[in-house]
Amino acid sequence: MALPAPITVTEAAAEHVKALLAKRGKPSAGVRIGVRTKGCSGLSYTLEYADEKGKWDEVVEAGGVTILIDPKALMFVLGTTMDWTEDKLKRGFVFSNPNEKGRCGCGESFHV
């Protein structure tokens, strides 16, 4: 039975993850998406290199890279799309989240 992947990873995002993992210079299991209960409206994302896969991590393979999702984060990121954005001022990964309702106005946290 094929369940849909918990998140979608765009090609651009996968390319940049691959490049950053190569640059890190030490073996990695992939990158891990987590959620931390901090910030002015409750939660914030974390995106970190993963040295090893956590026991309960959800694994998403896309474009040749491994994205791990912390089970605590799963319910918050389910159905999001991970993309890469780049302009004159900022570059980084973005998640568009259909579950998202409120935003604290600072762009750094959200609540579900």
């Binding site: 993850v17 950053l20 990158v31 891990r32 931390r36 901090k38 910030g39 002015c40 914030s44 994302y45 974390t46 995106l47 970190e48 290199y49 993963a50 040295d51 954005t85 900022k90 570059r91 980084g92 990964f93 973005v94 998640f95 568009s96 600072c106 762009g107 750094e108 946290s109 959200f110």
Partner: peptide, 17 residues
Amino acid sequence: SMQILEIHEPGETPLPH
């Protein structure tokens, strides 16, 4: 508008604000 994330070393993601 979206939150932009960078990849950090484990445990070193800075707090918002």
